[in-house]
Simulated scan of single mutants.
Amino acid sequence: MATTTVPAQRGPDVQQNRPSRKRWWGEVGWRYVVAAVAIVYAVWPIVYILSASLAERGTLTGSNRLFGEISPNNYASLADTYFWTWLGNTLFIATTTAVGTVLMGAAAAYAFSRFRFRGRRTGLIALLIVQMFPQLLAFVAIFLLLLVLGDVWPVLGLNSQVALIMVYLGGALGVNTFLMYGFFNTVPKELDEAAKIDGASHAQIYWTIILRLVVPILAVVALLSFISTFSDFLLAKLILQSESQWTLGVGLYGWVSDQLSANWGLFTAGAMIGAIPIVAIFLFLQRYIVSGLTAGSVKG
């Protein structure tokens, strides 16, 4: 008895299930193009500065060939300058300012968010108004104020890193407090009430519960404060007068301020090393920035 084999019916053609090339470019492909352009746009200046730092006679002109000359002399020459002193001063000022901004801003934001007291609304409005005026408008007032304070307390006068930190803290307190105030309001107050029932004080609630839930905004404020302080030039140039007290931005500017004797090789080498702390702190705080706020803290 002969058997007849019936060919199995094929399903829809695989090619029909696959998105066409035109559709892929329309939905996904263009994103790769935009990402590639953005990467090139961001990396090109870094590559150019790195090439100039490795050239013994590095310049920033268009005739400088990329990596046409590779020499570590510019990096080695930094040891003969105040560069490492400037970098240490900048790290100290930026770190102290970032920590102080986070602590002071978080405490003020917690008070405005959780407590009800006379003048609370007026204080919030004052913080909002203060943000409208840039700190740079107070140059003359800051200079005269520190000039007078220096006669009484030299540590708070001109050419003092402590005075510069105080100026940074005063300028950043308003905007950061208002920023964290909105974030503190998103933390459920039921957590505070539950902790009070268990006998926790306001200090225990603040340090052990609230601050742990608002780590993302604390990381953002610390990062922004550190970067703005690290890269600041105008206030540091105004207050710090002696070369040993300069920050990195003021010191690097001094190497290229005179066009006749501009040392772009040292400038670019110092700029490459100075960028490392910014990248490091961003990578360290990135996991806090992208993390959730109160995931799993409240049931129901």
Score class of each variant (00 low, 15 high):
14 V>T: 08
15 Q>K: 14
19 P>D: 11
20 S>L: 05
20 S>A: 06
21 R>Q: 06
21 R>M: 08
21 R>F: 10
22 K>V: 01
23 R>K: 05
23 R>C: 00
24 W>A: 00
24 W>L: 09
25 W>C: 09
25 W>E: 02
26 G>M: 03
27 E>C: 01
28 V>W: 05
28 V>A: 11
29 G>F: 05
31 R>K: 08
31 R>M: 08
32 Y>T: 06
33 V>T: 12
33 V>P: 04
34 V>H: 04
35 A>H: 01
35 A>P: 00
37 V>D: 01
38 A>E: 05
38 A>S: 10
39 I>K: 02
40 V>S: 11
41 Y>N: 10
44 W>K: 00
45 P>C: 07
47 V>A: 13
47 V>G: 07
47 V>S: 07
48 Y>L: 01
48 Y>H: 00
51 S>K: 04
51 S>D: 01
53 S>Y: 00
54 L>D: 00
55 A>V: 02
60 L>S: 06
61 T>A: 12
62 G>W: 12
64 N>W: 08
64 N>A: 12
65 R>T: 09
65 R>Q: 09
66 L>F: 14
66 L>N: 06
72 P>T: 12
72 P>A: 15
72 P>S: 15
73 N>C: 03
73 N>P: 00
74 N>P: 04
76 A>F: 14
76 A>M: 15
77 S>N: 13
77 S>C: 06
77 S>A: 15
78 L>G: 12
79 A>S: 14
80 D>M: 03
80 D>V: 02
81 T>V: 03
83 F>V: 08
84 W>L: 09
84 W>Q: 07
86 W>L: 13
87 L>N: 09
87 L>C: 09
87 L>I: 06
88 G>R: 13
89 N>G: 10
95 T>N: 07
95 T>P: 03
96 T>A: 14
97 T>G: 11
98 A>I: 05
98 A>S: 13
102 V>G: 13
103 L>W: 06
104 M>N: 04
105 G>E: 11
107 A>D: 05
107 A>G: 14
108 A>T: 09
108 A>M: 10
109 A>D: 00
110 Y>S: 11
110 Y>A: 14
110 Y>M: 09
112 F>W: 11
113 S>V: 02
114 R>N: 03
115 F>E: 04
116 R>F: 04
117 F>K: 10
118 R>M: 12
120 R>Y: 03
123 G>V: 09
124 L>H: 02
126 A>K: 04
126 A>D: 10
127 L>D: 01
127 L>S: 06
129 I>H: 06
129 I>V: 14
130 V>Q: 11
132 M>H: 12
132 M>I: 09
132 M>E: 14
132 M>L: 15
134 P>R: 07
135 Q>N: 13
136 L>S: 15
137 L>S: 13
138 A>T: 13
139 F>S: 12
139 F>A: 13
141 A>F: 15
141 A>V: 14
